[in-house]
Design a protein around this nucleic acid. Structure first.
Lengths: 264, 264
DNA sequence: CAGTGGTCTAGACCACATG
DNA sequence: ATGTGGTCTAGACCACTGG
């Protein structure tokens, strides 16, 4: 048996974890061991036996505790990372995700409103702002040439400092000649729109596409590469119906639910 | 080296596969071997070096071919199963998915219309039809008691015989006393609606939620358990705005794209 | 430096589908 | 009976993080 108590996750939680690990397994043919371990971990996390944000004992310790090889243990842990309940940091440890809540994104609301959830401090970080060639979709949408320019804005949304959503926005440069200056003043796209004489706009289309996170996406979102994510593409139009924004965002699959309601 | 040519995937394809496998790997620190193998497999599938629907050589043969352990090989294969390009059948082999196309689900169209894609034969199979206690969501939606009854319909949609979508629909029993009889006649929910005096209806809300396939879902969809899927929940209302259908469907993540457009 | 998670191996047994 | 994919092990080395 393991005799080295690991760093974190208080004593009480540790002993309860040990008790759960000591339970006999059902037959492998009924349910694979790694899935049974997965189930017990899910229970432990759901009941907050180990607190959100806390560090789990190391893999070797856990493997010993559950009486399986490290590979089998890793498999159970990996699935929970896929589902967003756990997050491993190389060289550091495996942590319980602090706030595994889901966000509701409604098509009849601005994104910012959608994000205003129960408690929690939503912040926005500008990763990059500049001019680029348009993506093919944006070029067609704005009716501009492929070698024309768009204003491109990369942003990261955070909840209490933890990243939850990364987006890449494109705007037609011709329409917003002073975009950079205005944005730097207020940090708000809505304000830039207003200063360009656009008082009202609406989301004309929203697309949802599932995928697995690329390396760069995983990095900024602090998840493992190849974790399932939702790509949400949104098009905003001014009152006349002309497209003014093309937005492609990436959410960890586990942390967002999308709602599309028709006003009636 | 392996010297047993496996069952399927024609000779030409096999030799090209072998050539690709023989290429030297980049340093493991740059990109893990299993991801490099994953990349090469993706290339092979995309270029249809092995035809859609064809069987891949066995895992042990492939592992030998790529010069890695079976576990490493399996890791590359597993990721492709997650993304829907490959599908393993226990005791049989690993197959290239025949039609990895995506379906567009629009909120301004009936599901049946959405499915009418380029070529391909869409069929529907009724898995189960009967009466049950309502799900909590349906009970609230229809304004009925938790111990009341709903008509419940499980259906599977297939494209050229291959399953692509499974759904569970609930209807208020009080409103459709002859549901079963009518549905058995036509096999169409729309017809049942009409025979109950409902000529027009609309989708009032659509929800999208990511998840990993349960064992039963994976079984009917012929995918591996824990493959990423999209759960799409739809509510249909009659012209007066009363809910008449609660529908929860499950798609393999890789085979669906959702579009929500506002009519303007 | 020690401890962590990430990768990889060689070998084994099982359940399943097919002939 | 054979071959397939699914599970599991014991051990090893690496890269990264932190004190």
């Amino acid at each position: 048996m393991a005799d080295v108590p690991p760093g974190s996750a208080n004593q009480e939680g540790l002993s309860e974890l040990a008790a759960l690990a000591a339970m006999p397994y059902k037959a492998r043919s009924v349910r694979p061991i790694w899935l049974q371990i997965y189930d017990r971990l899910a229970d432990v996390i759901r009941r907050e036996v180990v607190a959100p944000g806390a560090k789990l004992p190391g893999e070797v310790y856990l493997a010993d505790l559950f009486g399986v090889s490290r590979i089998t243990m890793r498999r159970a842990l990996a699935l929970h990372q896929n589902e967003g309940l756990l997050q491993a940091r190389k060289g550091v440890g495996i942590f319980v995700r602090s706030r595994p809540r889901r966000f509701l994104i409604r098509n009849d609301m601005q994104f910012a409103e959608s994000l205003a959830v129960d408690g929690g401090d939503i912040t926005s970080r500008t990763l990059w702002l500049g001019r680029q060639r348009p993506s093919p979709e944006a070029a067609e949408l704005f009716g501009i040439a492929p070698d024309d320019e768009v204003i491109c804005l990369h942003r990261l949304r955070q909840l209490d400092g933890a990243p939850i959503y990364v987006s890449r926005k494109e705007f037609p440069a011709a329409r917003f000649p002073e975009f950079e200056a205005r944005y730097r003043q207020s940090g708000s796209v809505k304000d830039v729109f207003q200063s360009a004489g656009i008082d009202s706009f609406y989301r004309s289309e929203t697309r949802v596409l599932g995928g697995l996170a690329s390396r760069s996406e995983a990095e900024v979102l602090e998840i493992s590469p190849k974790t399932p994510v939702q790509y949400v593409t949104a098009i905003n139009c001014d009152a006349s119906g002309a497209a003014i924004e093309f937005n492609r965002g990436c959410w960890p699959m586990a942390s967002v639910e999308l709602v599309f309601a028709v006003p009636h």
